[in-house]
């Protein structure tokens, strides 16, 4: 079976400073991989590089997503191909209505894939269901994107978007940070609902607690711009218990 995501010896620099220094990662269809690591290890850089942010220059290696080389694809092309990034800090877009935004996004993706635009009723039904599942007020649909949302609402709104857009691969960048335990469960349920054996996930996190609900297939430790350790769930528990200190020891 082909990989959903195949990252080989990836090097990414921001302003000529190399952040990712030869990262390898293979994610198969239906798999959920967790990436853990200390601050400054390059976790968010990986997310942005996958989504195609300007200024994140790929200086070496390759990213292959569902058989396509991502390097020359614009962010919107990556999205249309089925890649989704849940932002660590979702952006506020004043004046742009949440429902309108989400429908425009969905229809833009469908158009790029040559699929007919979704009708208003079907769209609303789908987004209302997702909101309900994440215990979010329907009134949020009429508000501007993320504007005036609490931190937790912003994070849950990312999961709503993911549920509506139905990507092939979702990269979640610290979606759990800043959430209380109830919101954390809702987010985890939102992710688990989408696990259908085909869709893949890369969950970037600082803490093990989200992983308790997700049962990742693989856990990786990112440090100094490389994956330095890979294992199963037990690796996450070890990191939680011992911290990242042992990495420095083994590096030294």
């Amino acid at each position: 079976m082909n990989d959903m995501l195949k990252i080989s010896q990836l090097k990414v620099a921001i302003d000529d400073k190399e952040i990712l220094k030869g990262l390898d990662l293979e994610v198969g269809p239906g798999e959920l991989h967790a990436i853990m690591g200390p601050n400054g290890s390059g976790k968010s850089t990986l997310g942005y590089a996958l989504a195609g942010r300007d200024g994140y220059d790929i200086t070496g290696g390759s990213i292959e997503f569902d058989g396509q080389d991502l390097a020359d694809m614009e962010p919107e092309e990556r999205a249309a191909a089925g890649l989704f990034l849940a932002f660590q800090y979702p952006v506020e877009i004043p004046g742009v209505n949440n429902a309108y935004f989400l429908r425009s996004a969905l229809n833009a993706q469908r158009k790029a894939r040559g699929v007919e635009e979704i009708d208003g009723m079907t769209f609303l039904k789908s987004v209302r269901e997702s909101l309900k599942q994440l215990k979010m007020d329907e009134a949020l649909l009429k508000r501007a994107v993320n504007e005036g949302f609490s931190g937790g609402e912003k994070k849950r709104n990312e999961i709503v978007q993911m549920a509506v857009l139905q990507p092939k691969l979702a990269v979640l960048d610290e979606t759990d940070s800043g959430l209380d335990i109830d919101a954390l469960k809702l987010v985890a349920e939102g992710i688990n609902r989408l696990r259908d054996g085909k869709r893949s996930f890369v969950v970037i996190t600082h803490y093990q607690r989200l992983l308790d609900y997700l049962n990742p297939d693989h856990v990786h430790v990112l440090s100094g711009g490389r994956i330095v350790e890979s294992g199963g769930e037990e690796l996450a528990r070890r990191l939680e218990a011992e911290g990242y200190g042992f990495l420095e020891e083994s590096a030294a």
């Binding site: 195609g52 614009e74 962010p75 919107e76 999205a79 952006v91 877009i93 935004f101 993706q109 857009l165």
Partner: peptide
């Protein structure tokens, strides 16, 4: 830039994303 990038990661093409941001403003 951050708002433009956010919209594009959701699949909205650059021109359309810019129009959306201008409209919102």
């Amino acid at each position: 830039d951050s708002a433009l990038f956010y919209l594009r990661t959701r699949g909205i093409p650059t021109q359309e994303a810019m129009a959306l941001l201008k409209f919102g403003f």
